[in-house]
Amino acid sequence: MTNVAVISFPGSNCDRDIITAVNHITGTQPTQYWHKETSMEKHDLVILPGGFSFGDYLRCGAIAARSPIMDEVMEHVWRGGFVLGICNGFQILTEAGILPGTLMRNKQLQFVCRDVTLSLHHSQSNAILGQCDDNRQLVIPVAHNEGNYFADPDTLKKITDKEQIALTYTNTGAANYNPNGAINDIAGVTSDNGRVLGMMPHPERKAEAIHGGVDGHYLLTSIIEAAS
């Protein structure tokens, strides 16, 4: 059974949602860590949840990325461990330098909270998505003010060539299919070893039929299986 950890920072507000979603999949309770902790047991998958860590002060995720627990997360990454960062968790991973690029203010300067359609790419090149099917589109909500993915041209070329652009907003024909102006419609990227995924949409908010969809459950189940 996949052994999952969830890290909470002051201002994390999706930690309990992701714990519930994981619990429904694995039947076990993930281990929760507070940002000040300086040691972490070995886990298969570490999840950085959504929220507004440290009130988004300085830059989203900037202060959380320098928290004591992040040394442990970094060590887990070096060991080849699996990591999933959702929304603020994605912002923290880019601020920590674990994932390339950065998340800027939404292009239209508005907080956006709604379902988006996502396409999966290069699942077979990224171990964390190894159980996913690229042909499956996912409808999962976003809820953020800073989700506008940006990377300089060199980085963008590198992550394109290395097949790290694993999730994009699908051009459904709607004018606002890309909810935040992200470059190349990027919704999620992986690390160059394919074991860390950061994504702006919230799979834990589409994890049960009562949520109006289970595409998030599908994605989380696939990731948990890949990490086992």
Binding site: L58, R59, A62, I63, R66, T94, E95, G101, T102, M104, F150, A151, D152, T155
Partner: peptide
């Protein structure tokens, strides 16, 4: 370099 600035942007 370590905290105050995101040198990516």
């Amino acid at each position: 370099e370590t905290l105050l600035v995101n040198t990516v942007i």
